[in-house]
Design a protein around this nucleic acid. Structure first.
Lengths: 203, 203
DNA sequence: ACCTGAACACCGTTCAAGT
DNA sequence: ACCTGAACACCGTTCAAGT
């Protein structure tokens, strides 16, 4: 064996395989990942610096589909452009809900994400917000999107309080739980509350 | 050794020690926890069922200080009561920011948290929301609070895009970053956007 | 009932050796 | 440059043995 003619591995190949494992099982180990790639665990270290590195690669993979440019140029209204980015951002993560808990422990260096912050900042500036308010607005959106993405990842039992539910909570749970798009509808509801508030703040 | 006259351990003792470790180091292992408690690792299993159990105990510990009753009874206006709960809830978590990434992988069975959901549901019903809207509103608040708590936990470098920052983003970062209460102010800004939106939705 | 020590299967990472 | 196999220190959990 040793050194094959064409490499069996690459950062992208590793990230894709790891993401598939996380999607399926909610976690991954280096031995299992190596086995899936028909490779020895130590081989991975020729392409990545450790497990944390793989997690960062998965973040990039998940978010790569976000089209910041489209929202930035095509859309004339700043609020509509920002809303569009938030929706795309959240949808990227909800395609890999079980990845999110792994991401929360690490910081963001992903280019797509930073590109998104850039567009958001420019759009908020265009709306007339000052620097400090811009940082607050981006923070609010980021927090909300990440929290909402976590909601998709959370098991359904999060919302099963057993016998301790009040009548109002019980009715609410019965009305919404198990609905396929429950998390999506709640996300959009809240996003529109936030966007409406930001538009009023701008005026 | 063996069986001391009075037990050296209890779930609360274990949870407190584990929380102290997480606060200090961002993680904990059973061997290290056992060492801190001057006990053998296997002894822990007389009081807890595993590592996941300890994490759930820490969640309860962190959130125990939330006073749902006060907000529920004392406050006449539903929106003010709900806002107060959200603030308390978020503040509990931000006292232990490094705990949050550990929590996100597990579901909630904590009594305080469920009690909080109950009060929220009742208050929203009082405001005239229907069951489905109630579930959405609680979801929105929960997502936002958790996302905001994560923001406290995140290292400051999350917001360091290096040379890739646009002028608007750069200015925003300079204006806000490093400010002691940056995360708190952003949280309150967004919370008030959401609450204002909910009040308009109720009317 | 509660603690111990030995044991198990596993993990992430390093490194000399091979081509 | 890239893969292997052996090795290391460590982890979470189980369980028979002790009192």
């Amino acid at each position: 064996m040793a050194r094959p003619l064409s490499p069996k591995l690459s950062p992208v190949i590793i990230a894709e395989a790891a993401l598939a494992m996380v999607d399926a099982q909610g976690e991954f180990t280096l031995p299992a990942l190596a086995k899936r790639l028909r490779v020895s665990p130590s081989s991975l270290y020729n392409h990545i610096s450790g497990k944390a590195d793989i997690i960062e690669l998965m973040r990039g993979q998940a978010v790569a589909a976000v089209d910041v440019a489209g929202a930035s140029e095509g859309e004339p209204h700043w609020a509509a452009a920002i809303r569009d980015i938030a929706v795309q951002y959240r949808n990227s993560y909800s395609r890999h809900p079980r990845l999110i808990p792994l991401l929360t422990a690490y910081s963001v260096r992903d280019e797509t994400t930073i590109g998104m912050y850039n567009v958001l900042a420019e759009r908020f500036a265009e709306a007339g917000f000052g620097p400090r308010r811009i940082l607050e607005a981006i923070t609010v959106l980021d927090n909300y999107v990440l929290g909402s993405a976590l909601d998709v990842a959370a098991p359904e039992e999060v919302w099963d309080p057993g016998a301790k539910a009040s009548a109002s909570l019980r009715a609410a749970l019965d009305a919404g739980l198990g609905r396929e798009h429950r998390a999506d509808e709640a996300f959009l509801f809240g996003l529109d509350l936030i966007m409406a508030g930001l538009e009023r703040a701008a005026a």
